[in-house]
Deep mutational scan, measured.
Amino acid sequence: AMEMGLACVVCRQMMVASGNQLVECQECHNLYHRDCHKPQVTDKEANDPRLVWYCARCT
């Protein structure tokens, strides 16, 4: 999947907007926009540098 680069696995886009940054699952290393992931990634989750985030598939 490395050839995908830094794109969201849901929408396949790399564009990021304020409040909709890409977050990386620490287990599978897929990237998700906060708005694309279900459930939506919260501000607290996205902005906490100590948080280890896992996508819905890996939790």
Rank of each mutant, 00 (worst) to 15 (best):
H29W: 02
T59A: 13
G5M: 06
Y32E: 02
C11D: 01
N47H: 12
A46E: 09
C28K: 01
D43Y: 05
G19K: 14
P49E: 13
N47W: 06
D48Q: 12
C11R: 00
Q13N: 11
M15W: 05
D35E: 15
A17C: 10
Q13R: 04
R50E: 13
A17H: 12
Y54R: 15
Q13M: 06
N20F: 05
K38V: 13
G19C: 08
D48V: 09
R12H: 11
C11Q: 00
E3Y: 04
V10G: 04
M4P: 11
V9P: 03
C8D: 01
H33V: 01
E3F: 03
K38L: 07
N20P: 11
M2E: 10
N47P: 05
D48K: 11
Q40V: 09
C25R: 01
D43C: 08
L6A: 15
E27L: 07
R34I: 11
C25K: 00
T59H: 13
Q13T: 08
G5A: 12
Y54N: 12
D35P: 04
N47K: 10
H37W: 03
A7G: 06
N20K: 13
V16L: 11
E24K: 04
M2P: 03
V16Y: 06
V23M: 11
M4N: 13
C11A: 00
R50V: 05
A1D: 15
D48R: 06
V16H: 14
L31V: 13
C28E: 00
T59N: 04
T59G: 06
S18M: 08
L6V: 13
P49L: 07
V10M: 06
G19V: 08
V41E: 03
L22E: 02
V23K: 05
T59S: 14
H29N: 07
L22H: 12
A56Q: 05
D43W: 05
V10R: 02
Y54G: 05
N20A: 10
C28I: 00
C36Q: 01
E24S: 04
Q26M: 05
Q26L: 07
C8K: 00
K44F: 06
Q40M: 07
S18D: 14
W53G: 03
N30V: 06
D35C: 10
K44H: 06
C8S: 01
N30M: 11
Y54F: 15
C55P: 00
C36D: 01
L31D: 03
P39E: 03
V16C: 10
A56D: 03
D35Q: 15
D35N: 09
Q26A: 12
K38R: 11
C58G: 00
R57K: 11
P39W: 02
R34S: 12
M15T: 14
S18F: 06
Q26C: 10
R12S: 14
M2I: 14
E24C: 04
N20H: 11
